[in-house]
């Protein structure tokens, strides 16, 4: 399938667009001995160095340093307003950074796009939009299809297979507003699946979904891991962290702790993340705002 869809994603000139390996569970570019990457193959899937993000001068994330291990399921955990979504968005240039250097597989995001998949929060889009579930999944292929090229039957078949893997084949032609919340989330996951990325960043995929959907998503994440992919998931449900994830990032404006769940997911660290000890940091931020804004 790569032979006909060649070198023409949205950034053809940079020579991206990994010809998609056939649907999901098969070959992953990273494991393919013939594939080599511009950047360093041994470079971590995501490397954040000295990142600070601010909204209207108020810091949201401070001095983030993090290297994601390859082939792991990583949870990002922290209280509301800790900057979990912002962390993901800032890495992907969706939110401006005040400072910091981000590398995906040793490359800046602009050149690593085809290897990075993104699942936004379900609430971030208008589900009344006049498209079908299949249309939404097909959007995951637009980057590969590129400018001025139509969506072909083959693309739609890939999308359909992807929907099928999430148990949504029967809903392919439904208008998306007729889907339940869990089904909508599965559509988003199917769209990520069809992207064939090596690293996925997911924003609260498990929030507000039914038990069946949660199982389907976890199954998919494990399949990703089994094929050597890395998944970073913003997660809100503390009790399931140990069961679902290998690594965890405890976040509250800064990284409180990060590492394997067994080492890091301790009561002390959680207390530090959720407890009141960080108010000092918050107060400092407030003071900074007071300093820089006119009285």
């Amino acid at each position: 399938m790569t032979t006909t869809r060649g070198n023409h994603g949205y950034q053809a000139s940079e020579g991206k667009a990994p010809g998609g390996p056939a649907p999901c569970n098969v070959s992953v570019p990273g494991n393919d001995p013939t594939a080599s990457v511009d950047g360093n193959l041994s470079a971590p899937p995501l490397s954040i160095h000295d990142m600070t993000v601010a909204y209207h001068r108020r810091p949201v994330l401070w001095d983030i340093d993090y290297d994601a291990p390859e082939g792991k399921l990583i949870a990002v955990v922290g209280p509301n307003g800790a900057g979990k979504s912002t962390l993901i968005k800032a890495c992907m240039d969706l939110v401006p950074r005040a400072s910091g250097r981000i590398r995906f597989f040793g490359l800046p995001f602009a050149r690593a796009r085809s290897m990075v998949g993104y699942v936004p929060q379900r609430e971030s889009v208008d589900w009344d939009f006049p498209v079908s579930a299949l249309d939404v999944v097909t959007m995951g292929l637009y980057g590969r299809i590129g400018w001025l090229r139509p969506v072909r039957r083959r693309d739609r078949e890939l999308a359909r297979e992807s929907l099928d893997q999430l148990g949504m084949a029967d809903y392919a032609d439904r208008q998306i507003s007729q889907l339940s919340g869990g089904q909508q989330q599965r559509v988003f996951l199917a769209r990520a699946l069809v992207q064939q990325a090596r690293l996925y960043l997911m924003d609260e995929p498990l929030s507000g979904v039914d038990a069946a959907t949660e199982q389907a998503i976890i199954e998919l994440l494990r399949r990703f891991r089994a094929t050597g992919r890395t998944v970073i998931v913003v997660h809100h449900d503390l009790p399931t962290v140990t069961e679902y994830f290998d690594h965890v990032i405890l976040l509250n404006m800064r990284i409180v702790a990060a590492g394997p769940v067994d080492d890091v997911f301790t009561p002390e660290n959680l207390q530090k993340t959720y407890g009141g000890r960080l108010t000092l940091l918050d107060e400092a931020a407030q003071a900074l705002v007071g300093e820089t804004s006119p009285p």
Binding site: Y10, V116, G117, P120, S124, F129, M139, Y142
Partner: peptide, 14 residues
């Protein structure tokens, strides 16, 4: 279409 539906995803796709 993609831009109207999901701008963040569009940007992430390059």
């Amino acid at each position: 279409t993609l831009l109207c539906f999901d701008r963040g995803f569009a940007v992430s796709q390059g």
